[in-house]
Amino acid sequence: MSDQPTVFVVDDDEGVCEAIDWSLRQAGLRVESFPSAESFLSAHGERPGCLVLDVRMQGMSGLDLQEVLKARGSELPIIFITGYGDIPTTVQAIKAGAVDFVEKPVAWDVLIVRIREALREDERRRSQRAGRTEIRERYQRLTVREREVMELVTKGLSNKEIARLLEISSRTVENHRARVMTTMQADSLATLCNMASVVLS
């Protein structure tokens, strides 16, 4: 399986980092570990997987890294490893979109379960993202007028209303509307509305 996702481990404590790395490999996971947020950032790219991240680190903290990834548009699921008394930080991390957290000392079986969930989440997010990209590409193929019609249709306007608004005939609106449905590959108005929320946001 060349497409096996990678579990990225970032912990500034060498001993803990090695222990997590070794433990995950025993579960048959592909692992890459990094001693700092900075080293991870320069190596990660956009590969599929999930991130196991220590909250407290020297230099760039776990929360800082989460923020940078978010700003870069990364949707890599993050599992935070937190220590005793890190509750406020954990809350902050979850609010900022972390998928999960495990407390130190980390129970192996729990971590493995969470990681598998996170990897599934990553797959889901990636296929969603791929879907969104596809929708945007189809939208690019529409003419300006077709885009106008699509916007008004998905706002709930009738063909007549659209015709009045755009000062064209209802017949022409119908034609545009049919081409929009074909080009966007939408089988219903509901599907088209979902697509509109992707391209018109």
């Binding site: 803990v16 222990a19 997590i20 433990s23 220590g83 130190k104 000392p105 980390v106 129970a107 192996w108």
Partner: peptide, 22 residues
């Protein structure tokens, strides 16, 4: 000190935990 010692202890716990499960 508890924090500092917790690091090697966390690593030890992890190793022994996994080893005994395996």
């Amino acid at each position: 000190l508890p924090h500092e010692l917790s690091q090697p202890l966390a690593a030890i716990a992890m190793y022994s935990n996994v080893a005994s499960a395996l």
